[in-house]
Design a protein around this nucleic acid. Sequence first.
DNA 1: GACGATATCTACATAGATGTAAGTTACACC
DNA 2: GGTGTAACTTACATCTATGTAGATATCGTC
Lengths: 205, 205
Amino acid sequence: MSIQDPARIEQPPKRRRRSPEELRREALVSARRLLIESGPNAITLKGVGDDIGVTHANLIHHFGSAAGLQSALMESMVRDLADALDAAVAQLRSDTGAPRALVDAVFDAFDQGGAGRLAAWIALSGDLQHLEPVRAAVHDLVDAIVEKFAAEGEQTHGRVTSAVLFIALCAFGDAVIGPPLRDMLDREPDSGRKIVARLLPSFLF
Amino acid sequence: MSIQDPARIEQPPKRRRRSPEELRREALVSARRLLIESGPNAITLKGVGDDIGVTHANLIHHFGSAAGLQSALMESMVRDLADALDAAVAQLRSDTGAPRALVDAVFDAFDQGGAGRLAAWIALSGDLQHLEPVRAAVHDLVDAIVEKFAAEGEQTHGRVTSAVLFIALCAFGDAVIGPPLRDMLDREPDSGRKIVARLLPSFLF
DNA sequence: GACGATATCTACATAGATGTAAGTTACACC
DNA sequence: GGTGTAACTTACATCTATGTAGATATCGTC
């Protein structure tokens, strides 16, 4: 196949012109992958640009600055975490939500979407204001658990916030250092979830 | 006060010549403080050098490279974490170790010693081999709890490793994202410790 | 007090990340 | 099909972190 193959009528355009929304979406997907696979330091303009096939200057054009890209990534991932928590709330309110299902929903939110690593990055870098959208989702989760599970009593709200704090701490910890820790203790991959699911009823009933 | 004040008999030496051990110790103390206060990206040769009053070239002379400094910091902090866990073990084996005392010991190791932020940094950067010295300390902790607390039974070892996994996950999570999470839920600062201390007996008895 | 080992510094070189300015091109719209 | 907007690129400038080479100063030791 020669370089100037006459069969190739239409050359692909040298440049691909994306809509601003599409480029932002592609860049954030790439940046999230880099964060999860290679850590926060891998999120650079050149790294993301090479990954999606644009120059670093173009990323600055769309995000304003490198910090703008990082902020957009934090916002995007935090929104996904909040959505995942909201989905857990919806599931809890609709059908037969067992404690283990709730635990799985929260653990998945921190683990699969990379929210655990994101939260660790935010905490280490000190940009705590980016966690703010999670607050409403957490409150919704508290309310949903109160409706669904909690026994009546004076301490109900306190017990449920304890339960949410407990689940969130464990889900976050499990997402970030669960694998090496389970390896040290020779435990199976879902042992964290099992433990939390087993302890949860002591808060709720 | 003139520059050449005759009253100032002995000028302080322009350079302070430290022993290699002393410089390494000072550098690692500074690097740990920078990690805890400003995050992993603050640990630079210039940052640490300015902090302790030496040039970055001198730090390279003593640590070999920037990566050498970071590795030394990880080793130092992991050793401190292992020592703290060993201290908790010793306390557990000697006197009246209540569950809350054990919880406080582990939580303090992760929180005050900076081990939580260290572990998050290691996990995000992928240098998991640096956590290896923790393995022995964790095993010691399991053994000590088995001796001290655990009721007799077939499942004893499994229950205790569950307890250790549980404490470690919560202590790590509490050290890294405990403050913002407690703020969202309007809980007091030691609520994480309270919860863990209250749940611990269900593993041990 | 002289000397030697080496801790320490200065000066320079390099690489990567970020940012700016100006030119180029794709694509919607008329 | 022409035209304008703006997505996109190239080229350049800057800043920071890291690393190297050689000069210099400090301190223990004789």
